[in-house]
Amino acid sequence: MGPRTITTSRRMASNRIFLYGCFAATSIAILVLCVLMISIAVEGWSSVSWRFLDSFASRKAAQAGIKAPLMGSIWVCAICGLVAIPMGIGTAIYLEEFAKRSRVKRLIQLNISNLSGVPSIVYGILALAAFVRCFGLNTGDAPWSLGNPESLLFIQFPCGPSVLAGGLTLALVILPIMIIASQEAFRSVPQSLRQGALALGSTPWQVVWRVSLPAALPTIMTGSILAMSRAVGEAAPLLVIGGFLLVFQTPTNLMSDFTVLPLQIFNWAGRPQADFHKLAAAAIIVQLIALLVFNSIAIIIRQKLQRPLQS
């Protein structure tokens, strides 16, 4: 007689233990998320008020608010989005729709995935040299300026630690993410759609503009929102370029000083007094609400707009 089979009950036991283990891991992850949200809500909820949103920073915890960082975050992220999203999509279009398979393309691809792994603080150092100081090209006393200081689009070189520099810095950080997300969107467009358009006599750009881009757009939008939510939360690179921790005005043009919510949270969280921890928690609540809104929009877009392109 051949050897016996291992008792099934023992294999079933290991099967069950494994399931419980995996389930426990998942539960812990969700539990952590809940604890995080609840502990912050408990700590900060009492400090969230209209006055909190509408006041500037202060040495007295009772009078401090987040008007400047809130407006700063909006300005910086708007600039970041305006720069990074079109550039990311453009690069993705070139790589997915135009570039031939070649060594060069492979290297560029590798380079982009490497860039997405570069710590954000290192981007801060690049931005400090490139935008804030413009590589020291302007050695004169006064910065070169462009436009009227009263106008919205007033620009100086070097930019200094301004809203513009901050937005461009964040654009550097999220550009690789944006490119990779858009590339995936283009890759998921079935080749048959492109061939159909080409067979009707479309030029390559017409194929992109009328077929690939519309088909890829929902995915690109989801990717953009997720990339932007990363930008909203970034603090390290802005800290390096000298985003001010105490600002008592809201930005008025591209050259205004600024601070952003995560920097303000960092400032308050780093202080020993419990009162300021409460303020930090309140600011985090504002930040997380914004984040949840972002994420919900992404989920809605994904579910409503993503029709299947092939049966």
Binding site: A29, L36, V232, G233, A235, I265, F266, L291
Partner: peptide, 15 residues
Amino acid sequence: ALEVLAGVPTVVYGF
């Protein structure tokens, strides 16, 4: 839920 966790700014985890 995990996507939310992924989007939480790192300064929040520090706090």
